[in-house]
């Protein structure tokens, strides 16, 4: 058997070890990474913010709502996916709906979205892609599918008095292929698309 004082001594060693590791791994390491990040990749390290003459308008990585004060979608802007983050695209409260595949609430929500999106865009409910009907995992998904963007092009063009073909062409130009050609899914970044749209009009 070990003597009592050696067993107690392990706790003293443990405490000292934790203090040393905290200094190295909890303070020096993140500090060093922050310095390197801020020096070498300042844009990314600070949140990939998009600036305009009037200040930052958002982050290319964080989706935002294109709705009026009541949460009604504005036809002038391409709309992102439904969001479960707070009241929608609340970047301080990321998260998904966590509704299960057989949950009646989810089924009702999908059917409601289907009919309102169909009416909003003047398309058949069957034409609406899945990403437009479902909330993302983060609630901050900055992307929609190409089909979802193209489906909205006519409505946006009408609302802005632009030729539909021009808006569709703009969407086509904003479709991002899969990373390295085989990873993930093709996407359209909604903020970047809407910024390009605003630039076109201006």
């Amino acid at each position: 058997m070990t003597k009592p004082h050696t067993a107690a001594r392990q706790y003293l060693v443990a405490l000292r070890a934790l203090i040393v590791f905290t200094a190295v791994l909890g303070v020096l390491y993140p500090l060093a990474i922050t310095l390197i990040g801020q020096t070498v990749f300042p844009g990314q390290a600070n949140g990939s913010l998009v600036s305009s003459p009037t200040g930052n308008v958002g982050s290319t990585l964080i989706g935002q709502a294109f709705t009026d004060g009541n949460g009604t979608p504005l036809p002038r802007w391409f709309q992102g996916r439904p969001s479960a983050a707070g009241d929608g695209y609340d970047a301080g409260a990321s998260g998904g709906s966590n509704l299960g595949p057989e949950n009646p609430d989810l089924l009702t929500a999908i059917e409601q979205r289907k009919s309102s999106i169909a009416a909003f865009n003047g398309v058949l409910p069957a034409a609406i892609p899945a990403d437009a009907l479902t909330t993302s995992a983060s609630g901050l998904d900055p992307h929609i599918s190409a089909a979802n963007a193209l489906l909205q092009a006519v409505r946006v063009a009408d609302a802005r008095g632009l030729p539909a073909a021009d808006v569709s062409a703009l969407v086509e130009s904003k479709i991002q292929g899969r990373d390295l050609g085989f990873l993930g899914e093709p996407t359209v970044n909604v903020l970047e698309l809407n910024l390009a749209l605003a630039g076109k009009e201006g």
Binding site: G37, Q44, G47, L49, L61, Y89, A91, L195, A198
Partner: peptide, 28 residues
């Protein structure tokens, strides 16, 4: 560092308020 290059943030500046395209305020 690879993750930062890919867009993961690394700062100690707290939240940044931005005014979105529709004029709403978003806290990044």
């Amino acid at each position: 560092i690879v993750l930062i290059a890919g867009g993961v943030i690394q700062n100690v500046s707290g939240a940044t308020e931005v005014t979105t395209l529709t004029g709403a305020v978003q806290s990044i």
